[in-house]
């Protein structure tokens, strides 16, 4: 297992807890979790449904605030970022891959991928050129002008990955990326993310309960009931 240097850390969580509700309705979703993930690393968070994996991802992405503990994102305490800075970070430095792909049905494949480039301030023309280049690299350039409804599940997730990496994101957050795919398609997607992580030296954090993908991970963390229970570091 490869060891990653401290100075390339993209995410670092220290004793992070997240409690939803108050008084008797209190639910502890995350309990005293500490972890880190670095550039060029593919980190796999394994755990059953309801173990707090997705909550952890949303905390890392700055979509939720921790109840206690500290989260460092790109070398800075996440609390020190303004709402606008967090929005810019999500647009420019973080890519998201969802279990159900969440492509916009009314946009073509090229427009779905290009929308994050538009968020990054690129013109329509620039983003179109960049999107076509990226789709070609992922061997889905023939789908550029088609709509998501016409695609297979595997193709949809490829497009979702293209959208996640279009801006050269330094951190990819993937929530159950193989959850809606058959084994072969699932492997292809994980392979794609692994290649991106290695070739571009990017950090990829995958949340899953799919044990078939463990072989691709640089590190595996297991979660249960909001706690990290085992690590293969």
């Amino acid at each position: 297992m490869k060891t990653f240097e401290n100075n390339s850390r993209v995410v670092e969580l220290t004793d992070v807890s997240k409690i939803f509700g108050s008084n008797e309705h209190k639910t502890s979703a995350i309990k005293h979790v500490s972890l880190h993930a670095s550039s060029g690393e593919l980190l796999l968070l394994l755990g059953p449904s309801g173990s707090g994996k997705t909550t952890l991802l949303t905390l890392i992405a700055g979509l939720l605030e921790p109840t206690s503990g500290t989260i460092s994102l790109f070398g800075r305490n996440i609390e020190s970022y303004s709402a606008k800075e967090l929005q810019e970070i999500r647009a420019l430095r973080i890519g998201f891959v969802f279990q159900t792909f969440l492509l916009i049905d009314s946009l073509t494949v090229a427009e779905n991928v290009g929308i994050v480039l538009r968020f990054a301030g690129k013109t329509k023309k620039e983003s179109r050129r960049q999107v076509i280049r990226l789709l070609r690299q992922l061997h889905i350039d023939h789908l550029a002008n088609t709509f998501p409804q016409t695609l297979s599940q595997g193709e949809k997730q490829r497009v979702a990955v293209a959208r996640a990496i279009a801006n050269g994101a330094e951190l990819i957050i993937a929530d159950e990326p193989t959850g809606s795919l058959e084994s072969k398609q699932g492997f292809e997607i994980i392979q794609l993310l692994k290649t991106y992580s290695k070739e571009e030296k990017r950090c990829v954090i995958i949340v899953s309960h799919d044990l078939r993908i463990t072989e691709f991970a640089d590190r595996i963390l297991r979660m249960e009931d909001g706690k990290l229970i085992q690590s293969n570091e």
Partner: peptide, 16 residues
Amino acid sequence: RKDFAVLKTLGSPKGF
């Protein structure tokens, strides 16, 4: 609303 939630998550700028 799901589309809008996704666009917000992906970092759509304020006002977009």
